[in-house]
């Protein structure tokens, strides 16, 4: 299996993503510079966190129109799995690969902490390591992670099992009290209809060893790599 990590000039979780993928994969990931318009032939494309082009405009708005993203959209349409984390999720919504938008956090502040997430939709590739309803812990680190979609889209996401993770408590209870950033329906991550794209605000690549404070992220990547091998 081969993986590529897209690198924008303001990406800053690109190395973390590379380390996490390589820890599970055992071979190097391709780092693909935003200025390149051709992607290597890979089995997984990761769009990492950061501030793509500074994000002084809407987060991911400029990256969404970059040449490399046109290529990523094409690959995704033909079925290549795409993991879009944090700024990657924001970029994915800007391209239309995923529905909805990420607004400023309800408290108007950057939030960095570990959060409990309830695994919702079933997707063997991305969440096969976890049972539906299980609680996993990944960190968040964002200023604009407040997921918004209109009622119709929301109903479709919920109805078709496309909600991947929800902000919850340690017992899996999903409530306003566990909604860290104001996301509609506590949504932390979603799949596209075909199930080959996962966009999520939390960072699984940050909890990949006991020394870093947890291994749920390692389980996530181990499963992802195994399912694509």
């Amino acid at each position: 299996m081969k993986a590529a990590v897209i690198v924008f000039p303001g990406s800053n979780c690109d190395r973390d993503m590379k380390v996490a993928i390589e820890q599970s994969l055992g071979t190097p990931a391709h780092m693909v510079w935003h200025g390149d318009s051709d992607l290597p032939d890979v089995d997984l494309i990761a769009i990492p966190g950061g501030f793509s082009y500074g994000d002084y405009l809407r987060c991911g708005a400029i990256a969404g129109n970059s040449p490399i993203m046109r290529e990523v959209v094409k690959r995704a349409a033909s079925g290549t799995p795409v993991l879009a984390v944090c700024n990657g999720f924001q970029i994915a919504t800007e391209t239309g690969m995923l529905p909805g938008a990420l607004l400023r956090n309800a408290n108007q502040k950057f939030i960095c902490k570990d959060v409990d997430l309830k695994v919702v939709g079933e997707n063997k590739r991305f969440s096969g390591a976890f049972a539906s309803g299980q609680v996993v812990r990944f960190p968040v680190a964002h200023h604009d992670g407040n997921y918004f979609a209109d009622d119709e889209t929301l109903a479709r996401l919920e109805g078709e099992g496309l909600v991947a993770f929800k902000y919850a408590d340690a017992n899996g209870e999903v409530s306003d009290a566990t909604n860290i950033n104001g996301s509609r329906n506590n949504i932390a991550g979603i799949y596209n209809e075909a199930g080959n794209i996962l966009g999520l605000m939390p960072h699984p690549e940050r909890l990949i060893s006991e020394q870093l404070g947890g291994t749920d992220g390692k389980l996530f990547f181990d499963n992802l790599v195994n399912s694509l091998n």
Binding site: R15, A20, F110, C112, A141, E205, Q211, L212
Partner: peptide
Amino acid sequence: EQYDHMVMGDTI
């Protein structure tokens, strides 16, 4: 909690 204190993946 307003500072990203984990990016770079080495904060132990």
